[in-house]
């Protein structure tokens, strides 16, 4: 009996990891990353983020929903800013404005999730240990 059960567990574990592997490999972007985040200084684990899966689930078609762009006057434009690192505009840690980049990310992700009542909003839901 016991042997059978053990075999079953192993089979499930193998299945899950293989499927997982396949799923991951289909995506290019797996975490929220920005070269401005210093791995040695970050306070929380990086956020796991499956770009295509997310957009599919959230039914987001346009890039500029997230990759927004603004003109000189500070007005939102229809352009999108993919390919530009967030930290180019949302300047990270300066003495006057600490946590600016963190704030931008949080408002962007959490703000949308809270509004739509869908997706993670609590700290540990994204920054999983």
């Amino acid at each position: 009996m016991k042997k059978n059960r053990l075999a079953l567990y192993i089979a499930i574990a193998v299945f899950v990891s293989v499927c997982g592997g396949i799923a991951f490999s289909q995506e290019d972007i797996r975490t929220v990353a920005d070269s401005a985040f210093d791995v040695r200084q970050i306070m929380r684990p990086p956020v796991r983020f499956l770009h295509d899966g997310h957009n599919e689930k959230a039914q987001i078609g346009d890039c500029n929903v997230c990759h927004h762009a603004y003109d000189e006057k500070g007005q939102k434009t229809d352009d999108s800013s993919e390919g530009t690192e967030c930290s180019e505009c949302h300047k990270p840690e300066t003495p006057e404005n600490t946590l600016a980049l963190t704030r931008a990310y949080h408002l962007q992700c959490k703000g949308c999730h809270a509004e739509r009542k869908a997706g993670p909003v609590m700290c540990g839901e994204c920054h999983v240990k």
């Binding site: 600490t98 946590l99 949080h106 408002l107």
Partner: peptide, 11 residues
């Protein structure tokens, strides 16, 4: 502190 930053942009 992050939550204060988010809501009030103070830290």
């Amino acid at each position: 502190v992050v939550l204060w930053k988010e809501s009030w942009n103070i830290s």
